[in-house]
């Protein structure tokens, strides 16, 4: 109970601080005060002043979309991870690990290479469709009347990721130089060069999944009892599952389309939150959203400052941090996996 009281304000503070850091740090150093003024200038019609035009320009066109994209995608991925873990009744489910992100990336790759004139929304749409199909396939493969099996889930994820990897490899072979660059970025995940239309799309996805997931928080709790038990409590389990799967596919699909594959946020964040406040989805979902947003923004700051003036793809940073965490998790759960 005490945990919950301090966690909300501290996460909110972390979110604000990380966002300010994210708009301040970069090749052009802008002081946090100036950044704050610049953001206020952008947000409100007031002219607070003391911001040089070139600083305002950098913030408006580069730093702000980048920061907002990191926040939105982090929040979406963390919530999708939390919901998938609830849906599969398994704390190891994550869009990356079970192959959904790879599926979505394949969808995006198909669009980039084969329909180059399709434009960004086409890419987002095909990433979403491919993500949805992958989620449904993995879900079918891993489900049995007694629940979902972790072993099957991970194996299905491996198989799907391998298949998607082969598909992307084939497309890479066929691609021209322009498409090749896009494809590589896709697989590593990057927030660099964030564009406003992707920011808006991601924010819409964030609003949609946050609203819908939070509406289902109580039902998700009940679902953890088991499908039969949830049904006895009056839940329409099949409808609920389908709705949540589609929403996860929308969230992950749009995230992948906007930034490529960013792994482990969906796995690590809900875990950390659960360790602090327990598994109740009413707390877990909003807190995961906040922590996911802050963590991805932080990882992105790392991505652009660790090897400055060059840049690391942010997916690399999250994988470097997340993969060891996943291994620890596996070791802790070893006795339950068989």
């Amino acid at each position: 109970m005490d945990n919950r009281r301090w966690l909300w304000p501290s996460l909110l503070a972390a979110l604000v601080i990380t966002s300010l850091m994210s708009v301040s740090i970069g090749p052009l150093q802008i002081s946090p005060t100036v950044s704050f003024h610049a953001v206020m200038n952008w947000l409100t019609p007031l002219d607070i002043g003391s911001v040089a035009p070139h600083e305002q320009l950098v913030i408006n066109n580069v730093r702000l979309p980048r920061t907002l994209l990191a926040l939105a995608v982090g929040a979406v991925l963390a919530q999708c991870g939390a919901v998938m873990q609830g849906l599969f009744r398994n704390p190891l489910a994550d869009p990356g690990i079970i192959g959904v992100s790879s599926g979505a990336a394949l969808g995006a790759a198909i669009c980039i290479v084969l329909i180059p004139q399709g434009g960004e929304y086409m890419v987002a749409l095909s990433a979403f469709i491919a993500g949805l199909v992958t989620t449904l396939v993995v879900y079918r493969l891993a489900s049995s009347p007694s629940g979902t099996s972790v072993v099957l889930l991970l194996l299905a994820g491996v198989a799907i990721a391998a298949l998607a990897g082969a598909g992307i490899g084939l497309l890479t072979y066929m691609a021209d130089d322009m498409a090749l660059r896009d494809l590589t970025l896709w697989q590593l995940g990057s927030i660099a060069g964030a564009q406003w239309h992707y920011v808006i799309l991601s924010l819409i996805a964030l609003a949609l999944v946050s609203w819908q997931f939070n509406r289902s928080a109580k039902a998700l709790n009940a679902l953890l009892l088991g499908e039969a038990e949830a049904r006895h409590l009056g839940l329409d389990v099949d409808k609920l599952k389908l709705r949540l799967i589609v929403l996860c596919a929308i969230g992950v699909g749009i995230s992948v389309a906007a930034t490529g594959i960013i792994g482990f946020i969906g796995l690590v964040v809900p875990h950390l939150v659960r360790m602090m406040v327990g598994p109740d989805h009413k707390q877990l979902l909003p807190l995961s959203a906040m922590l996911g947003a802050a963590l991805l923004a932080l990882a992105d700051i790392g991505a652009r400052s660790l090897v400055a003036p060059s840049e690391l793809p942010v997916g690399l940073v999250t994988a470097l941090l997340g993969a060891p965490f996943f291994i620890v998790l596996l070791l802790k759960q070893r006795h339950r996996l068989v």
Partner: peptide, 14 residues
């Protein structure tokens, strides 16, 4: 109408 299941396999730390 409510059912008490024989085994309730709830592994999340509620």
């Amino acid at each position: 109408l409510a059912v008490l299941p024989q085994h309730a396999s709830l592994t999340f730390p509620f």
